[in-house]
Every structure is written in structure tokens, then in C-alpha cells.
Design a protein around this nucleic acid. Structure first.
Lengths: 321, 321
DNA sequence: AAAATTTAGGTAGGAGACTACGTAAATAAT
DNA sequence: ATTATTTACGTAGTCTCCTACCTAAATTTT
């Protein structure tokens, strides 16, 4: 427990996504509130949508506001009532539809709006700077639309239905076609998390049989609780040299020495196959992995300038016997 | 108000970021809860962090849990207490530090964990699919670290301090160096939102003076409430032909006919300069803009196969006099 | 050794969002 | 015309997270 890993959720990868998102949005919200307070303004961070909506469209019904902002209507009501109490909104009954309460900005609101817009512009600029050089917006949009289309719940449910009771113990098995997808799944996750996925990766991860097994290599899977929780590949590089690659552990199972067992198993296999050495390429930022390699006897050697991977900045080797 | 723009927050661009983020994270949370309910499980969507944390590290104090998950400690306490009540957690006093309450997983938790992990894996896979082909994770990480470093509040505050009371009315003025940054600000926003920014864009947006003005073109700014809310550029393409480009309105000021005024003003200028025609390149997905162009008299002509912009799939022209 | 400060953990209260349920007006169906 | 259904709100209750404040143990200072 020496160096405390500060951000566990980040370490959990895809699984931590939900809570990380909430964390960011909550923080932004809190900051917004603080900002208004320090400026001495009597508005809340979630009001700007209503302000701008009514600034553009004039009078709107409660449901319309909710629809535009994609809020459940009670939330819209809560905001509207507060704004009304603060004197920014007025409401009137719709002449033809008696149920409808049409809300609109008061003179106070219209007077203050330019000031608020100025502040929102500043905030907008901050967000622009924070998201500069990223595709956060396009990606977020894509995420939202995919998410709205596909039913997350039912998809996850069906995936779950394949659950079968199996021993808890860790077992390590060689490649079999039925786990080919897991090979990709495990590795795409950490690649995605730390680097960008390179073309060379796609080939191997999507076609392990043809790119690794058929060329004289081997892949091992760590199985636990009934599914694949770790992978490692030995790629035949020379008649007596393996490259060790695609070593990945499912985030949920990290910290359980599974990587170590997998690595030792692979080394043992290489030795039994009569190979002279195993080498690997990695990145210095992946300290836990490097420690593991070191512990297993790998030593740093000169970097290969012709590596097909951009992310690799270190090469290690282990001589067998 | 013909076609109701469904997502107002998306339309607001950077400004809508906060609420969109909250919307997504809340939705994910709700879905998680529904998922567990339909599976008949007595766990909550925000428990997985604690489960996996204790699975890895064994016994931890309340504050440690809070730190790892980056939660305020009352939140951690709330989760821990519920999990304890549900029988998943037990607590004991630390032998040396009497204040410390060390929590750990019960036998029930350890027994159920494989099942839950299976479900979380399925959820993980769903997130992977939803974020495939995006850089959401790398970008989110970058956003988080930038955000944690720079003080959003104080930055926005200082930007706000430049506020000066100015007339509410819209005015249109020609290029001046002091608004050069605004030219970039306004245009980067919509480019970022709808497309990816192309190299050609950076040049022009960062150096309007040399790339547009000095080459015989002109830029107009719409000013309102004391700051720039819209831009349009006329680029000299031929001795009597302008290309109309970089037409953008700050999201907060959309729907106020500012674009229309700016466009007519630019056309008028071109006419006064004695040009024969103005053409523009755009994208068919930008319906509101296309309507505007159409209304101003632009007609669709054959597309230019040599356009420097990837995003453009339509070309329109307006003959003057 | 006594006093001051930090740290661990807890409570109270507030904000935001959502679901579920209820009511009355408007619209559609028979 | 009467009944059934949809729509527009509104209320209540629950969940999440956070800040502010409090206590008591551990650690530092003096």
C-alpha cells in the first residue's frame, strides 16, 4: 500500500466512467454556485438554460421548458418557481388552454441579462480552453446519441444472462477461439485509457488467431469467477525469440497478483519451448507493469528504433537459461 | 418556432456543457439502479467503488475510502453505512488509532462479488462500445487535470471584471485588431461543436489580419451588450469576387436575427465595393444557416471539388446587380 | 507536560435530479 | 353527447453529492 493510487475510479477504466462523470459535473456545479456567490448575484448555476430559452422564445409553458432542456418536468418546475420567487420570471395563464402556465422574463431579468451573459461568456471561454485540442464535444454528442438509441439496461442484462457458476480460483489456459473476443476486450480497455489505439493494435487484437497463433506464437488467458480477467501474448519473432505483448488485466481484478502469475506462466512456457530469450516493449509511465517485469528478471536494453508502436519508449529482455 | 430544436443545451455549445454532463451522469445512474432492480439485487449503482476497493485492499478506514474514490467523506460514510446495513460490510475499531473505523467485506459480499463482477463487466463492455472510436477517456482525463489545476472561478471572475456598461442595441462594425481574438472565439465554438477544426481554419482564425484583411478582404463584428456576439468574413478570391465565410453567432445570441443582419450588411458592403458576386461553402446539415443564405438570395451552384474544407458539401452563390 | 493543531469520523441541512402519483383541462373515440 | 385518453402541471418522497460544523483521538509545538 506504499504509494497510494490517488484516483481509483480512473484506474477502474470504463467501469469508473459513471462516477467520474458525476464527479466532474458536480464539481462544475459547485464551482458555478461559488462563482455567483462571490459576485454577489442571486442566481443559481442551473438557471441559465431557462434564462436563455425565454430570452429567445419569449413565453413558454412549463412543459416546453422541460422539453427544451431535457429535464423531467418537476425539475423544470422547481427551477421556474425559484426564479419566479427571485423576481426573474412571471407567469400567466394561457388564454386558450387553461392548464398551461406561460412563463416569461420580467423587466428585472431583461435588465440583468446582459450582465449575466457577460459572465456566461467568460465561463464559456473557460470551457473552451479546457476542452481545446480535444474532441470532447463531438464525442459526448456521439455518446449521448448512441446511449439514447441502445438500451443500456437490456444489453447489460443479456450479457449477464450468460453467467454460469464456476470456480473462484484463478486458472491459466492457452488460446482457444471462444475467448478471442476477450483478448480484444481486455486489451482495448487499457490501451484506450492510457494511449491511443494504433493500427498495429487493431490487427492483432481483432485477429489473434492469424496474427499470433498461426505464426507460431501463443496466448494465455487468466480465468477467474467464470470469465477472462487477464491476457498475455507471446509472439514468435525469431526461431528462438518471443516478444511478450498484450499483457492486460481487467481493472476489477487488478492488485491480485494475477499479472504476476500470468507473466511467470508465460516465461515458463517460453523456457519449455526451448526459446533463448523473451523481450518486450513498454512505456515508462506504466510503473506497476515495469516493476513486475523487473521482478520477473527482465532487464532494460537498448530501445528498438523500428518499433511499430508509437507509445513504446522502453525495451526489456529476459534471457532464458 | 416551426421545428422545435430538441436539444437546447447542445445548441448552447460550451455553455451547455455543465448541464449536459449532469444529464448524462444522472441518466447513467438511474439506469444502473433500474438494472439492479430488474435483476433483483440489493445493491446500489454507487457501491461498486467501495466493493472493489475493499476487494483489493482488504480493510480500509472511512477517510481512505473517501480519498480513493475522491468523494467528500460524508458521501463515503453514507455509502458505507448503507452497505453495512445491507450486510455487505463490517467495521472494527483500529487497534492503535481509536478514532479509526476499519471496514471490510463480509462473507456475503465475498460470495456475491463474482456475480456482481460479472454484471459490472457487462456494463463495462457497454461503455466500451459506447465510447469506441472516440477519445472520450483521454479527453476526460485531460479535462479533469486541467480543471483541477486552473481555478475556473477566479479565471471567470477576472474575465468578468472587464465588464463595462454598454448599449444593448446591436451594432455592426468592421475589423479592428482589438477584436481579433473574438473572431477566433466565436468561430472555434461552432466548428468544434459540429465538425473538427481543419488546418485551414486555424490559420485564418488565429491570423485574421494577415490572412483576410491584408489580402483585400473584410471582417464584420456584431456587437451587443458590450461584446462581440457574431462574425462574418469576406475573403477576396478574385478581383471582383468575395467568398463569404466564418459566419458565426455566439450561442447565447442565436435566434435574434443577428445572423441575418450581419449577412445583409456584408452583402451590402460587397455591393458597394463593386464586386460582381459572393459565394460561400457550407454543409447541408446546417439547415438554419442555409435557410438564411437562401433567404438572402443565394442559390446553390456546382460544388467546388478543390475546396480546402472537408466539411463543405454545398456551394452557394449570389450575383450582385 | 501542557497547549495548539491536525486528523478521523459523524451529523445536519441544502441543492439537484428523478420516479410515482394525482388533478383538471383538452382532445379523441364511440 | 358521453366516455376514454392524453396532456399540463403540481406534490411528495427518494437518491446523490456537497458544505459547514462538531467531537474526540492523535500528533506537534512550545
Amino acid at each position: 500500500m506504499e504509494t497510494i493510487q490517488k484516483d481509483f475510479l480512473q484506474e477502474l477504466g470504463y467501469l469508473g466512467f459513471t462516477m467520474r462523470l458525476k464527479r466532474i459535473s458536480d464539481k462544475l456545479m459547485q464551482d458555478g454556485r461559488r462563482l455567483y456567490q462571490s459576485l454577489g448575484l442571486d442566481i443559481e448555476p442551473n438557471w441559465y438554460g431557462v434564462f436563455l430559452l425565454l430570452d429567445r422564445y419569449g413565453k413558454l409553458g412549463v412543459m416546453e421548458v422541460a422539453d427544451y432542456l431535457q429535464l423531467a418536468h418537476p425539475s423544470a418546475i422547481a427551477i421556474i418557481n425559484k426564479m419566479e420567487k427571485a423576481g426573474y420570471l412571471l407567469a400567466e395563464r394561457d388564454a386558450i388552454d387553461q392548464r398551461k402556465r406561460r412563463v416569461f422574463l420580467t423587466a428585472k431579468a431583461k435588465e440583468k441579462l446582459p450582465v449575466y451573459k457577460k459572465i456566461w461568456s467568460a465561463g464559456t471561454e473557460s470551457v473552451r480552453q479546457l476542452t481545446a485540442l480535444t474532441n470532447l464535444f463531438a464525442d459526448l454528442k456521439r455518446f449521448e446519441s448512441h446511449y439514447n438509441n441502445s438500451d443500456f439496461t437490456s444489453r447489460t442484462l443479456s450479457a449477464h444472462s450468460q453467467y454460469e457458476t464456476t470456480p473462484r480460483e484463478l486458472s491459466i489456459i492457452p488460446f482457444s477461439e471462444k475467448y478471442a473476443d476477450d483478448f480484444g476486450r481486455i486489451n482495448y480497455e487499457w490501451l484506450h485509457m492510457y494511449f491511443k489505439v494504433e493500427p498495429h493494435d487493431y490487427e492483432m487484437l481483432d485477429h489473434p488467431q492469424s496474427y499470433i497463433i498461426d505464426k507460431g506464437g501463443q496466448i494465455f488467458f487468466a480465468l477467474c469467477d467464470g470469465f477472462v480477467v487477464g491476457t498475455v501474448a507471446l509472439i514468435l519473432k525469431d526461431k528462438d525469440v518471443y516478444e511478450l505483448s498484450k499483457m492486460g488485466i481487467a481493472p476489477m481484478y487488478k492488485g491480485k497478483k494475477i499479472g504476476e502469475k500470468l507473466l511467470l506462466y508465460a516465461i515458463d512456457y517460453a523456457r519449455k519451448e526451448g526459446k533463448k530469450s523473451v523481450y518486450l516493449e513498454s512505456n515508462t509511465s506504466l510503473t506497476p507493469a515495469l516493476n513486475l517485469y523487473h521482478k520477473a528478471g527482465f532487464v532494460e536494453v537498448a530501445n528498438d528504433p523500428d518499433t511499430p508502436y508509437e507509445r513504446c519508449d522502453i525495451r526489456m529482455e529476459l534471457l532464458l537459461n
